[in-house]
Design a protein around this nucleic acid. Structure first.
Lengths: 221, 221
DNA sequence: GTTTAAATTAAACAAGTGTTTAATTTTGCA
DNA sequence: TGCAAAATTAAACACTTGTTTAATTTAAAC
């Protein structure tokens, strides 16, 4: 019932059994979870907005916890693939890092909601299955970063005293802190429409992060 | 009943009416809110661990929402002061930035719990009073950063194309992302005890952030 | 010691929670 | 058209939620 397989249409791992109604539920769940948190969202909230009966959520996913699991796999499965493809590209290390940052920003920006849930609902909880899936994703990301940076160090472009596992926290952390404080920055930077906000992320914020990581990697004391 | 005044003993704004029992409730609330979220924590959970009657929380704080308000003010009031003192110090801009980062790291690290709540429970909700208090804190922080950086730019030490409002997201975001993924990094870096974990934050992570911001500020393309 | 206010309690309250049941409707296929 | 499986529903289930009540105990002041 809940097997996941590779979908060559969407180029992502996805539940081949996902029909329109399931997807509709997942989309609503993502929206509400990200707005009000997992515990703060009731399945009646979801069912009301998705315009389905409450029982359908248990019927389709088994439970609220399993709905979260399905949501996470549904939303994170293609990021890993994108990173692995990037590693194969034959471009210089700095450009690769910039592309890595670009992937992070755009992919995570599309799925702000679920990544918010991932970070705030998943830790120190019993949702083991969801958590291990997320941990594997993080391990893969770290490996990609390690690989790119050692390439750059071998070529003598990057300095050698960088703490590699802390690169990702700086990249994603900067983005997340910005997004977590959205109302604050919307007011401060006059990003009154959703378009302006998204545009600021994919241009200015992206550039800031790329500039920061570049400086960190190539700057000599 | 809920007036706040400056306490010269602790050098912080605090509720002068806070007795032992109230503080005990606040401490337990912080722990549970940070572990299970605001919605995920019931006042019965709090009362059980704090070993008081459920009704005492309503009696003391009025409601669960007002308990959160009190907690935020109780925990964030002295950070603003520390930053204002820093601005007065007569040291060179780079050292000032490093001290700013040090203040952020140590202060936030002591209050991990409440800052987690602040970022994940406060946005897009109706808890207006709590939110405006937090917004004021952020505005103050931004002013401090702006002041320090223009000093550095005036002295010709810092480059001039830095996007100042994105400095804080990089500093705090890096720290937060690390902390949000604590289980992951504990396993990755073998930080098996709480002491090792805290030690890594106040040494290696702090150094990484200082190194990053320094590179960003002084590196010329 | 009496009085008055504060602190503390167990119980009750109404509303909301995730989940299950059992009945009904819709669907796809022979 | 008839039939079995799937989808959908309203209702009920047992439980938890935040808050309030009203009674009791403790503390302080006179």
């Amino acid at each position: 019932m809940f097997n996941f397989a590779f979908d060559y249409k969407t180029n992502s791992m996805s539940n081949i059994q996902l029909n329109d109604k399931k997807i509709q539920i997942l989309e609503v769940a993502e929206k509400l979870f990200s707005e009000k948190g997992f515990e703060g969202t009731s399945i009646r909230d979801i069912s009301k907005i998705a315009k389905i009966n409450v029982a359908m959520i248990s019927y389709y996913f088994g439970s609220k916890d399993r709905l979260l699991e399905a949501l996470i796999i549904y939303k994170t499965s293609d990021l890993k693939l994108k990173l692995e493809n990037l590693l194969q590209e034959n471009i210089d290390p700095l450009e690769k890092i910039n592309k890595l940052i670009e992937i992070y920003i755009t992919r995570i920006n599309c799925n702000k909601g679920i990544f918010r849930v991932l970070h705030f609902e998943l830790n120190s909880k019993e949702r083991e299955k969801s958590m291990t899936a997320f941990t594997e994703l993080k391990k893969g990301n770290l490996k990609s970063v390690e690989s790119i940076i050692s390439q750059g160090q071998a070529k003598g472009v990057f300095r050698k005293d960088v703490i590699i596992p802390l690169i990702t926290p700086t990249i994603i952390g900067t983005f997340f802190h910005f997004h977590m404080n959205k109302p604050f920055f919307v007011e401060l930077l006059n990003l009154n429409t959703e378009e302006l906000y998204d545009n600021y992320i994919t241009t200015t914020l992206k550039k800031h992060i790329q500039q920061t990581i570049k400086a960190l990697l190539v700057y000599e004391n």
